[in-house]
Write a protein that binds this DNA or RNA. Sequence first.
RNA 1: GCUUCCGUGGCUCAGUUGGUAGAGCGAUUGAUUCGUAAUCAAUAGAUCACGGGUUCGAGUCCCGUCGGGAGCUCCA
Length: 658
Amino acid sequence: MKITLKDGSVREYENALSVYDVAMDISEGLARAACCALVDGQVADLRRVLHQDCTLAICTADSPEGLAALRHTASHVLAEAVKNLFPGVKLAIGPSIDTGFYYDFDHEPFSREDLDALEAEMKKIIKKGARLERFTLPRAEAVKLMEERQEPYKVELIQELPEDAEISFYRQGDFVDLCAGPHLMNTKGVKAFKLTSSSMAYWRGDSDKARLQRIYGTAYNKKEDLAVHLERMEDARRRDHNRLGREMELFTTVDVIGQGLPLFTPKGTKMIMKLQRWMEDLEDKEWGYVRTRTPLMAKSDLYKISGHWDHYKEGMFILGDEAAGGEVMALRPMTCPFQYYVYKNSQKSYRDLPYRMSETSTLFRNEDSGEMHGLTRVRQFTITEAHIVLRPDQAEEELKNCLDLAYYVLSTLGLQDEVTYRLSKWDPANKEKYLGDEAYWNSTQDALREVLREKNVSFVEAEGEAAFYGPKIDIQAKNVYGKEDTMITIQLDCAIAENFDMYYVDQNGEKVRPYIIHRTSMGCYERTLAWLIEKYAGKFPTWLCPEQVRVLPISEKYEAYGDKVLKALLARDIDATVDNRSEKIGFKIRDARLARVPYMLVVGQQEEEQGLVSVRSRFAGDEGPKSLAEFLDQICEEIRTKAIRPEMAPEETKQAEK
RNA sequence: GCUUCCGUGGCUCAGUUGGUAGAGCGAUUGAUUCGUAAUCAAUAGAUCACGGGUUCGAGUCCCGUCGGGAGCUCCA
C-alpha cells in the first residue's frame, strides 16, 4: 500500500511489519505518533480509532490511542526498571488505564522509597532510549521463551490463547514482554510520568489466586499536562466528600457505632430532607406514584420466596439463631418483596396498571469490612425506590417514563452531563447466579436496549452486572478520583411475579402475570449527597443549601433589625440564621464564606433606616443594597426554580481566599 | 475478607537515637460595638484509638483488637 508522508512524498510498503517500520519513519512528523496501522490492507486515517480489525494504528500523540500507547510503553519501562532493581520479580500484566498505567508484579510490597528509586531507574532507561521492536512467535515457541525467562504468569496467559495464534512480543533492549501493543517507537518518548502509588492486587482479580503488588503511574506527552493532571488530583482531594463533608459538618462517623454507619448532623440532615421531599412530591404529583410504608425486617420465609435467601444471604443482616430453633428474621436489603404484598392486598384489573408503588426506605446490606467508604458505600442507607407493576404491553412506555424522570432529576441537580449509561446484562457463563433461561434474558435485554436506542441515549453494555432476576439500565457516576458507582438503576423483571403469585385480571377475566420494573430516580440519599459535595465542592445550588442566608449585623446595635430580617426570611421558608457574635463584619463575612453560605445580608445603620439589606453572594460578590422585599422575591424565585447560579470565576474566589 | 499505609485535644498537624506531651485553628469567658475575607486577652480541653508485651522508663519498639486511607475481591 502507499502512504503519503507529511512532506508530500509517497512511499510504498508490503506488509504489516513494514508498515510498522514506516510508522517509525514518519513518527517524527506526527509529533511522537505511536504505532502503525493496517485496516483491511489499507492504512487507516492518521487519527483513526483502533478498531478490532485493525492490528496496528497510527495516531497523533495526544489522541486517546496515542496516550494509551505512551502509557503502555511507560508500563514496560516500569517493568524493566523493576527487573533491574528487583531481579527475582515475576511479571504479571501491565496495561494502560484512563489516567495512566499500572503493572502487577509478584514481589514483596513496594514502599514509597522503592517507587522513588524505580522512578529514577525509569528515567535512566528512558534517557538511554531503546527502540521498541515487535516480533511474533508461534504459541509453542512463545511459551518456551517465557519459560526460559522464568515468567510463569506470562506462560499462563499465552497458554490461554488459541493454539494457532501468532503471539506478539515487544522488545526494548534486553527487556522482552508479551504484549499485543501498540507502543511508542522508542522508550525516549516517555517524557512526563510519575509513579503514584502501589497496592495489592490478585492475579486475574481472583482472591483465591496469587497476591501481586500493583504499581500505579500516570504519564502524559508534556510535562505541563502531567502538572495539570497532578493539580487536578490535588483539587480532587480537596473536594473529596469524605473530607469536605465532615469539614462542613454534614456528617460524621463514630468508632463505637460502626463502619459504614454514618451519622448525619443537622446540616446534612436538612439537605437530605430537601432532596427527599422534592423527590416524593415529584413522583406523587407528576408521575402517578403511590406511597407505601413497609417493615424494615421480615422472617426468612419472605426472602426464600424472593430468592434472596439463596442468592444474597451473605449480604444480609440475619437476626435470631436458626440453630437454636428460634425465629429467624433479616433486616431488609431491598424493598421489592414488601411492596409485592402491598400490590397483592387487593385484586388488580388491567385498568389499574401500571401500579407505581414508591417508598423512601432504609435498607441494610452487610458489606465486607474493606468495602465501606464515606457516604458512597455504607451498610445502612435510605433510598426512594419504586416497583411498578405493569402489563407487558406497557413495558416500553413505562421504561421510557423512568428514563425521562431520571433525566429530569439529574438535570435539576446539574448532574446530567456527569453520568454514563450502562446496559447491565447477565453472564451466560454463570447461569446459576441468575433466575430464568437464555430466552428470558435475551428478550428482556433486547427490550432495554431498544428503549435506550429509541431514547437516543449512548450506552455501554456490560456482562455480569445484572440483578439475579433481570437486566438493568444503570446510570453511572464517577467520584472525584474517577471511581465509578451506580447512581440510578432501572430494572426490568419478568420473572419474580411468578414466585409471589402476582397477577392482574385482563379484559377476558383471565389471570395474567404482570411485569415489574424496579427503579430509582435518584441514588440513595447518602451517595447522592456525596456526589453533590464533590460536584459542587460544597457550593451547592441555593435551594439545597442547609443554610441559605446568613444575616450579619454590623454591631450589637442592629441586632433588633437583624432579627426582623431573619423573621421575614423564615416566614418565606428560607433557611436563614443570624450571626450576633461580637465580631467585626469582616470576620463574619469570612466565616460565612468558608461555610459556603450563598447569601449574606449585611445590616447596619443605613439598612435599618431605609428597610434595606446589603447583599453579598457567592455568585456575584458584593451586590450592594436592595430592599428586603426585593431580595425575598429574588431568592424565593431562585429556590422555587431550583436555579443553579454560576459561581464567581475561580480566580476571583482564589484572590479573595488569600 | 485480602494487601499496604496510618491512628497524638473538636479539627489540621509537631514530637529527635525510648526519658514522662506542643502549636495553629476551633471552643469557652472577658474586653471591644466595629461597614464587606481573621480585634485583643485569658481559660478550658489529651488515661497519645484500645488491650497486652519488652524496658528502670513506651506517644516512640513488638504482638493483638478496633477504626481510617489507598487498592483488590464483591456489589441484588
